[in-house]
């Protein structure tokens, strides 16, 4: 029997954080990597679109500051998500993104399932790769922010640290950016779009809710837990409207194409960068 019941996965604030991260991340990729590749034909072309050599740096700095503000806001928001009456249970429980031993167990089960040696793991609210996605941003963003601020204010930095720390900061900023971009544009995009269970697009992050059936299939332990707590409503939230769906499909695929465009050209032109 098919029902139309849906279940909430991300609230409006979660989705707005993800949306603003998408936009700022792509802007930083465009401005940052076009400057890194400025010595190549492709880099110069992209750079002229995002403001030229000086203009793109200004944009990169302002978007960077916006990202830092977003990070601070998100951290405050995180604190409000903790149920302070039962802090330990809330932080270490199943609704939390903190990794625990169950994730390790799930990983083992997942490997066995991939090779046909056992049943698939019964995931709760977050799979271990979703947790990794989250914490990858959470440690990458402060690193990029700190090194970015160092490079933005080199004179102030050299008053506190030796001048050669700027060499290290520049290298760290570049390397972490490459790590973030390759991870997002390969792994995160594959999981969100190409994986059979999410193809053509995992809508949870835009619609906010997913069909209860899909949730029960992907995260059986989560739905079972909600059912046992009688927290699954009969109908649940409404399905996203048609035009809203069209909008986020277009937006999602535009972002996807941007990412793939940067990834492919970045790989193709990597050997023409004249810096060392």
């Amino acid at each position: 029997m098919k029902t139309k019941a849906r279940i909430n996965r991300f609230n409006v604030i979660d989705r707005l954080f993800h949306l603003s991260l998408m936009i700022t991340f792509l802007l930083q990729t465009a401005t940052g990597f076009s400057r890194l590749y400025i010595g190549t034909v492709w880099g110069r072309k992209v750079n002229s679109v995002v403001g030229g050599y000086e203009g793109s740096l200004q944009l990169h700095k302002w978007v960077g500051v916006a990202m830092i503000l977003g990070f601070v806001l998100h951290s405050v928001y995180l604190l409000t998500r903790i149920k302070w009456r039962t802090p330990l249970k809330s932080i270490l429980g199943e609704d939390s993104l903190i990794p625990n031993f169950k994730d390790l167990k799930h990983f083992g089960q997942q490997v066995r399932w991939i090779f046909g040696l056992g049943p698939p793991p019964r995931f709760d609210r977050w799979t271990y790769w979703e947790k990794f996605d989250y914490w990858a941003v959470y440690w990458g963003l402060p690193l990029l922010a700190a090194t970015g601020l160092m490079l933005m204010y080199p004179l102030a930095t050299s008053r506190l640290l030796p001048g050669w720390s700027l060499n290290i900061a520049a290298l760290l900023h570049e390397a972490e950016a490459i790590l973030a971009v390759t991870y997002i544009f390969i792994v995160h995009f594959f999981i969100g779009h190409l994986r059979p269970s999410s193809f053509p697009m995992n809508e949870a992050m835009f619609a906010g809710s997913i069909p209860l059936e899909a949730a029960a299939e992907e995260k059986p332990a989560w739905v079972a837990r909600l059912r046992s707590e009688r927290r699954v409503p009969e109908e649940g939230p409404a399905a996203p409207g048609r035009w809203y769906r069209v909008a986020y499909f277009v937006f999602g695929y535009a972002a996807l194409s941007c990412g793939v465009y940067f990834l492919i050209n970045g790989l193709l032109y990597a050997r023409h960068i004249s810096l060392h």
Binding site: P154, L155, S158, R159, L161, P162, G163, W164, L166, N167
Partner: peptide, 11 residues
């Protein structure tokens, strides 16, 4: 402008 000795330590 305003470079100090430590700033000069940039390689």
């Amino acid at each position: 402008e305003g470079a100090n000795a430590s700033f000069g330590g940039y390689i």
